[in-house]
């Protein structure tokens, strides 16, 4: 059985504010028929102050879905609608002292029900834009749909890149086969009918960060990608650049990835460039993070694409002392 926190168990066994709410003036019905959860959130909103005076729920779902619904009603009672809309699914999970990764979607459903109920109160249409797939990465709770979306949006090709963009695969690494399958499926689609997609093995090889073999694999691999994404091609001849131009380009790449790292309370800075090796300093949450290798691998991939030449990205700690 799941490792539920005491708080989850307590809210499941003694749910607060369950059952229909008379004279509710905002009702949100959401659900995911496949995963088996459905939730009706009922709000009683004071029309003058827009304060949620009462909130009730009815939930068809597992223990954590019921506990998440119960927690949600407790959190939002007394809030204004504006405050309530600030409540994130993480707030719900935190209120319950955490949820197992497989169960995070229960808190997401709670948040969606809240949005739907508020939209209903305001007489607006609300549509669910959140599609859910099978859970791939259990360490960071990333599902297949999310991975496929990010792969498509960013034209990703390797497990390493997927980890860089979504965190998926950055923990125990047991899900790499699953990620490779998603990549292979998308590549087959990109290649179009009649063209043979690269076997998943190719993705596995390119995922090996910093290995010398990596470079040649990327090159061999590139023509398949180039079919639809000429910008991602690394086989283009490297442009002649001065060192200053090159460093400027490197800084541009780092600037482009910094927002992503900062979102996770981390950061990166350029330390030095020595030939084909770029040394960076990982800061904040990134320093000492177990995903350091994946982060650097992702940056390296972007550098290779931007510079049009094969470079290595290493942490500053790897810089030779006698340089």
């Amino acid at each position: 059985m799941w490792e539920y926190s005491d708080k989850v168990r307590e809210h499941f066994f003694n749910p607060r504010n369950s059952g229909p709410l008379k004279d509710a003036n905002g009702i949100g019905d959401v659900g995911s028929i496949q995963c088996g959860d459905a939730l009706r959130l009922m709000l009683k909103v004071d029309e003058q102050s827009e304060i949620i005076e009462d909130a009730h729920f009815q939930t068809f779902g597992c223990g954590s879905a019921i506990a998440s619904s119960s927690a949600l009603t407790e959190i939002i009672k007394g809030m204004t609608l504006t405050q309530a809309l600030e409540v994130s699914n993480q707030n719900i999970a935190d209120y319950l002292d955490g949820l197992p990764p497989e169960k995070m979607h229960c808190s997401v459903m709670g948040r969606e029900a809240l949005q739907a109920a508020i939209a209903n109160y305001r007489g607006e249409e609300w549509s669910d834009d959140h599609e859910e797939g099978a859970l791939i990465c259990k360490c960071f709770a990333v599902d297949a749909v999310k991975i496929a979306d990010v792969v498509n949006a960013n034209q990703l090709n390797t497990v390493e890149e997927v980890t860089f963009y979504t965190k998926a695969g950055g923990g125990c690494t047991a899900c790499h086969e699953g990620i490779e399958e998603i990549l292979a499926g998308i590549k087959a689609e990109r290649a179009g009918p009649g063209e043979v997609s690269p076997p998943p093995l190719a993705a596995a090889l390119t995922a090996a960060p910093l290995a010398p073999a990596n470079a040649s694999t990327v090159l061999v691999h590139a023509p398949t990608v180039a079919v639809s994404t000429p910008t991602a091609a690394v086989s283009a001849p490297p442009a002649r650049r001065t060192l200053v131009q090159k460093i400027r380009k490197i800084e541009e790449v780092l600037e482009s990835v910094r927002p992503m790292l900062q979102r996770d309370h981390g950061d990166v800075e350029l330390a030095d460039v020595q030939g084909k090796t770029i040394y960076v300093t990982l800061k904040g949450a990134c320093s000492g993070c177990m995903m350091e290798v994946a982060t650097l691998g992702g940056i390296q991939q972007k550098m290779i694409e931007a510079l049009g030449e094969l470079v290595k990205v290493l942490p500053v700690s790897h810089m030779p002392v006698e340089a």
């Binding site: 019905d29 659900g31 009815q58 939930t59 068809f60 019921i66």
Partner: peptide, 23 residues
């Protein structure tokens, strides 16, 4: 606790049947 259930029977058989927005 179930939105599909209403007092003594499935909510589908009464008015205001539960029809959530599905993902």
């Amino acid at each position: 606790l179930s939105p599909y259930w209403c007092d003594k029977g499935p909510a589908a058989s009464v008015d205001g049947a539960f029809a959530p927005t599905y993902a």
